[in-house]
């Protein structure tokens, strides 16, 4: 809704003589904004007060505000562990890979979809690649298990014997395969959904650009490189900036369910989220789990600010704010 106001302001030919005049003019828009703002306030801003939990020793009888302050004690476990390096490294590396490769794949997907002119086929392909996004990770983990199960899996039973590997691989105890497996699963599940944004942006590009390019004899590839890509740069930058904000989070389902919580794989599958979950499952300490969330979001927030600052230096138009 804020965007609607921004758009209206951007309209040329309107001059503002008086402030109240301006408010009157936009009052319908402002009123339309209210429900959205209230929703944001209640759903997104109010819960932020919960951050105090991270700094308290929660006692339900004393209540949230009455509980004792303990400073950064709840955060210690995230850093004072021998695994701190592994979980941080895994979280960041996987996310970097997902951001870079994910953007590229989603972009390519969107361009390919854009080339399909048959409406019916387009809808069909779109549905097919988006469908995995709707499947719960728990189910995905069993689909993966059906492929990789040591006894009955498709890989060990059918695929590997084709290549002369008769013994099979015990997938769930060999950590070296998992960066590949997790990446494939992640993109199989997510690429269709993320290509929707690019596809929508592609639809907004004026056909005239391409026509002009074709008249000048530009090939398909040239058109993509010199028309589509530049026009979509702001979108790509923005999506990347937003994903950087979540770089300290990991897809819990992907890293916990899909490897079946197999201990032998922790060196390549443990992330901050799974570490916190495993460690606190027994005790259920909400102070410590909140601390993990606060840590993740503050680092994410700082990274977004920094990344945005860098983008802003390079090209003001592409920055998020």
């Amino acid at each position: 809704m804020e965007k609607a106001v921004m758009a209206a302001e951007a309209l040329p030919g309107i001059t503002y003589k008086k402030k109240e005049n301006r408010y009157r003019k936009y009052s319908p828009l402002l009123i339309m904004m209210v429900p959205g703002l209230v929703y944001m306030l209640i759903n997104n801003y109010l819960p932020m007060l919960g951050i105090v939990i991270a700094f308290k020793k929660i006692n339900f009888t004393k209540g949230l505000l009455g509980s004792e302050w303990i400073g950064f004690e709840n955060f210690e476990y995230l850093f004072k562990t021998s695994d701190a390096f592994i979980i941080t490294r895994n979280t960041i590396l996987y996310n970097l890979l997902f951001i870079v490769l994910g953007t590229a794949l989603a972009f390519i997907c969107a361009i390919l979809l854009n080339e399909i002119k048959n409406k019916l086929l387009l809808k069909f392909y779109q549905s097919v690649i988006t469908l995995p996004h709707l499947i719960s990770m728990v189910i995905v983990s069993y689909l993966v298990y059906a492929l990789l199960s040591p006894d009955t899996g498709f890989m060990n039973r059918t695929v590997l014997p084709w290549f002369g590997v008769e013994d099979g691989i015990s997938w769930y105890s060999e950590e070296k395969y998992w960066p590949w497996i997790l990446t494939i699963v992640h993109f199989w599940k997510g690429v269709g959904y993320s290509s929707i944004i690019f596809f929508a942006a592609l639809l907004g590009i004026d056909e005239e650009y391409y026509e002009a390019a074709r008249l000048d004899g530009a090939s398909r590839v040239k058109q993509i490189l010199h028309i589509t890509l530049p026009i979509l740069t702001p979108v790509i930058t923005m999506l990347t900036l937003l994903s950087i904000g979540r770089i300290f989070y990991s897809d819990f389902g992907l890293f916990y369910q899909v490897p079946m919580n197999s201990g032998a794989l922790f060196n390549t599958t443990a992330t901050i989220d799974t570490y916190v979950f495993r460690g606190l499952m027994g005790s259920g300490d909400i102070g410590m789990s909140t601390a993990a969330g606060v840590y993740q979001s503050i680092v994410g927030f700082l990274l977004v600010i920094i990344a945005n600052y860098v983008v802003r230096k390079a090209s003001k138009d592409n920055a998020l704010f």
Binding site: Y77, T81, D83, G263, F266, Y275, G279, S283, M288
Partner: peptide
């Protein structure tokens, strides 16, 4: 409790 969290992860691993 910090040690317990780390220990829980180590035992889960091995």
């Amino acid at each position: 409790k910090n040690e317990m969290t780390a220990l829980k992860n180590v035992t889960d691993q091995y």
